[in-house]
Amino acid sequence: MRRHEFQPGRLLAGLVLLVAGVLYLLDAAGETDLAWWVIVPMTMGGLSLAALLGLITYAVRRDRRDRISASSDQ
């Protein structure tokens, strides 16, 4: 299997959606009583953080790639 680069934004998005799904299942099973206005903002906030983390990761990798290509051109 080919190695791939670590993508922390996707990891965070997956964890946020996993937690939201578990909370929804617990609510459906009657274990907890959560209102929709708790789950929706938590999910949207987590996905927003994941998008921000993805952009930061992209910027860092692009900067690193540009520095490597600039040093090899000299």
Rank of each mutant, 00 (worst) to 15 (best):
M1L: 13
R3L: 14
R3V: 05
E5Y: 10
E5T: 11
E5H: 11
F6V: 01
F6R: 13
Q7I: 03
Q7T: 03
Q7L: 13
Q7N: 14
P8L: 10
P8V: 06
P8D: 02
P8H: 04
P8M: 04
G9P: 10
G9A: 15
G9Q: 03
G9F: 02
R10H: 11
L11V: 15
L11H: 10
L11Q: 10
L12E: 01
A13L: 12
A13M: 08
G14W: 12
G14S: 12
G14Y: 09
L15E: 07
L15I: 10
V16S: 01
L18A: 13
L18Q: 03
L18S: 10
V19N: 04
A20Q: 03
V22Q: 00
V22W: 02
L23A: 10
L25M: 13
L25V: 08
L26G: 09
L26E: 08
L26C: 11
D27G: 11
D27M: 06
D27R: 14
A28Q: 15
A28N: 07
A28G: 03
G30Q: 07
G30N: 04
G30P: 04
E31I: 10
D33G: 09
L34M: 09
L34D: 02
A35H: 11
A35S: 15
A35Y: 05
A35T: 08
A35W: 09
W37P: 00
W37V: 05
V38N: 02
I39D: 01
I39T: 15
V40F: 10
V40C: 02
P41G: 05
P41T: 10
M42D: 03
T43P: 06
T43E: 01
T43A: 14
M44C: 06
M44I: 15
G45W: 02
G46Y: 01
G46D: 06
G46E: 01
G46I: 06
G46P: 04
G46K: 01
G46V: 09
S48P: 00
L49H: 00
L49I: 03
A50P: 01
A50S: 02
A51R: 03
L52H: 05
G54H: 10
L55N: 09
L55F: 07
I56L: 13
T57K: 04
T57V: 00
T57A: 14
T57L: 03
Y58A: 09
Y58S: 02
Y58G: 00
A59S: 07
A59D: 09
V60H: 06
R61N: 13
R62Y: 02
D63H: 12
D63T: 03
D63S: 10
R64L: 13
R64D: 11
R65F: 08
D66W: 13
D66V: 09
I68G: 02
I68S: 02
S69G: 00
S69W: 12
S69I: 12
S69K: 15
A70R: 15
S71M: 14
S71E: 11
S71W: 14
S71Q: 12
S72D: 06
S72T: 05
D73V: 01
D73S: 05
Q74C: 04
